[in-house]
Design a protein around this nucleic acid. Structure first.
Lengths: 267, 267
DNA sequence: TTCGATCGTTCAGAAGACCGAATGACGTTG
DNA sequence: CAACGTCATTCGGTCTTCTGAACGATCGAA
């Protein structure tokens, strides 16, 4: 065992300097199983991750022993385990914004009668943290944990409007993806919308991620939060006048929640 | 052919034979941060997990780089990251039972007007996988991902009633924990309740985990599933007669969902 | 300011995990 | 019925990560 040890940096193809290999693989497995419907065999995952089967085998064993992945009765197909669900919902419970938002969202949903969401910017996307259903029969689909492109949602635009155009340009993936015929993909038009939202105090979405759905959103905090709340409804129930009404209600709710957060934050 | 087969690790104090150390630690971090409100420093976690700080440091770095844990602006307090939420909700989307249950739960909630739950047995506890709110102003608190002791819930008893008394005895932690004055903690009484539930086809909970809440539950599948659906209401809205009515509705819903599952399962 | 405590971070030796090929167990096909 | 493809699993040698102690940064108090 001579082996002068040395730095060991020499040969690695493209390894990040400070990453624990097995740790990264555990997370990659969770993300892979979470991405699709997720029912993969060991061989499939090994191929997809470019990792030797034998190495992955030991990792999956560890994960299975702790309930983070489940294995078919046949013993050949992995899926996410219950621990993943428990930890995921714990994220919501441990989050100050989500915890405090409950009553505010209830009140806003009660006042408007429409679907209400709390969302957080995560890279180029927005994640729903909480929602309240509309009282009407005709409802939009949404779910906590769901991700939508930020540039095509009221929530995303409300948060992005807080930043400089240069910062926005840096944060998003260009060109912007088109989700519906009405999605704004032109950079200038998009930045103009953000400027308008900043002046007006609220951001809009007019069928840009779901056809026929309009949405009004306001960011929380004062210039540095990544969160926003919104109210959405079908166009048939939200003309321009109603949109202004709702915008005022959402603005008040956002202000009230921001105040709550500032009171509890510094503690 | 048993070859040389170097048998046991002579020296390891009490290490599981086949576990990847870093992998287990990643999962333990997630569980630790998910357990409480969860805002822990590196030193606190290292102490709580009995792991050297330096080892944990590298792991947390890896987790942070991938968005699985967040770090305070101050850089001294870790909490769960957004990836945890995304993966957790993916568990629900990838689950056949939860996905197919939607319409059935909607119908049952509509028919009874009361809170409806889908739950799964996980060790000694039951986890809520889906819920529908009551139409009434007086509601019970519940949340997807929440865990309750199986022995004190209708859902848990419905699932456990499928097993032999010996199997039940093996699965639960004795003595049974008392959650309310009405929680059944006597082993004989508990097993008698399960026997009754098996004969009758549905399990009951009468204020055993939440004072004043009654619940009717029926297991899915035919003798080997770990899932059940239930309907809960305050005692003021659920007398014995109403309970029988609701039991019939829940039984029909459970049967209908089981049929759906068998049709899609073998595929 | 100075001290002290607490925290995150770094580094070389020591321990353990990773890798690739070979094995056994299925289920499927010709 | 037998040969094949695919699957999970095992095994030692090599290389990575883990460890414990020392370092540096940060904050609060004296």
């Amino acid at each position: 065992m001579e082996s002068v040890a040395s730095a060991g940096r020499g040969r690695g193809p493209e390894r990040k300097p400070e990453e624990v290999k097995s740790a990264a693989r555990v997370l990659e497995v969770l993300e892979l199983l979470g991405a699709d419907g997720a029912r993969l065999s060991l061989a499939e995952m090994a191929a997809s991750m470019a990792v030797p089967k034998s190495s992955l085998h030991a990792i999956l064993r560890t994960m299975q022993a702790r309930g983070w992945v489940d294995l078919d009765p046949s013993g050949t197909r992995y899926s996410l385990g219950l621990k993943a669900l428990l930890t995921g919902t714990a994220y919501l419970e441990g989050d100050d914004v989500t915890s405090l938002a409950g009553p505010v969202l209830d009140a806003l949903a009660e006042e408007t009668g429409e679907a209400v969401h709390l969302g957080r910017l995560d890279g180029t996307h927005v994640v729903y943290l909480a929602k309240r259903e509309s009282r009407h029969a005709l409802r939009m689909y949404s779910a906590v944990g769901r991700r939508l492109p930020a540039h095509a949602t009221g929530l995303g635009k409300a948060v992005l409007a807080q930043y400089d155009p240069a910062e926005v340009q840096r944060r998003l993936d260009w060109p912007l993806e088109r989700l519906t015929p009405d999605t704004v993909v032109d950079p200038e038009e998009f930045l103009a919308q953000l400027a308008e939202a900043r002046l007006r105090g609220w951001a809009a979405d007019d069928g840009e991620n779901s056809v026929d759905i309009r949405c009004v959103a306001v960011a929380l905090g004062s210039g540095q939060g990544e969160d926003a709340i919104s109210c959405s409804a079908p166009k048939s129930r939200m003309d321009d006048a109603r949109m202004e009404e709702i915008a005022q209600a959402v603005t008040e709710a956002a202000h009230s929640l921001s105040t709550l957060l500032k009171r509890l934050g510094p503690h």
